[in-house]
């Protein structure tokens, strides 16, 4: 464990708790893409299948359990409890356009052709594009609530910090996982224009609005 990965994990935890808190407090999931949340749920479930079989540490097990629980709770709030506030007209990104190619790629490019490894690879690839419906929804509505932009900033920062963690681990532990690194770079690149808008607008107290 290194500081970059720890701060990354905490940023990730902050992001998902922030979103859950926003929906619960405002009793509304306006501006939130349910499709992205479904895909994140899929990411955690397919990645943490070894939750009960492969004990790494208390921290690892706890965080995995929290991520799965919070993802399920968020999906429940969006599609059940506060369904009336779900903006399905703007959450129109076709998930199958992401899940099918990612599923195919996971079969073709992986470290080991076993069920667990292919599911892990699928999870890594899916996570890199899971935010697209959310970014697409913001581009359609032209704006995002400030709390939602903080959520996105924390979520984007987590994988950016993981890239630093991988550089650190390569030099100090000789560890690297090309699949995770490439997918992590793609994932972080997708946030770049959002990061720019966040730093230039939200940091200056303005609302995040995309140039119409």
């Amino acid at each position: 464990m290194n500081i970059f990965r720890l701060v990354g994990d905490l940023s990730h935890l902050l992001a998902i708790l922030l979103l859950l808190w926003k929906i619960w407090k405002t009793r509304s999931c306006a501006g939130v893409s349910g499709k992205s949340q479904i895909m994140f749920g899929l990411v955690y479930i397919t990645r943490y299948l070894d939750l009960f079989t492969n004990f790494i540490s208390i921290y690892n097990t706890t965080m995995k359990a929290i991520f799965i629980a919070v993802a399920i709770a968020t999906i429940y709030l969006i599609y059940f409890k506060f369904k009336a506030t779900y903006d399905s007209n703007h959450d129109t990104f076709r998930m199958e356009f992401l899940i099918v190619p990612v599923g195919g790629l996971a079969f073709l490019v992986n470290h080991d052709f076993t069920a667990l490894e292919i599911l892990w690879t699928f999870s890594i690839y899916l996570e890199s594009v899971a935010i697209l419906p959310q970014l697409f929804m913001i581009s359609k509505t032209g704006e995002a609530e400030t709390i939602t932009s903080h959520y996105l900033f924390a979520l984007g920062s987590y994988r950016a910090l993981y890239i630093v963690n991988w550089v650190y681990r390569y030099y100090f532990e000789g560890f690297f996982d090309l699949i995770a690194i490439v997918a992590g770079c793609v994932q972080t690149i997708l946030y770049c224009d959002f990061f720019y808008l966040y730093v230039t607008k939200v940091m200056h107290g303005k609302k995040l609005s995309l140039p119409a």
Binding site: D9, K64, H111, Y162, F175, F176
Partner: peptide, 10 residues
């Protein structure tokens, strides 16, 4: 070559 270490990352 990739060193397949324990999947210890989240």
């Amino acid at each position: 070559s990739k060193i397949q270490m324990e999947k210890d990352e989240l």
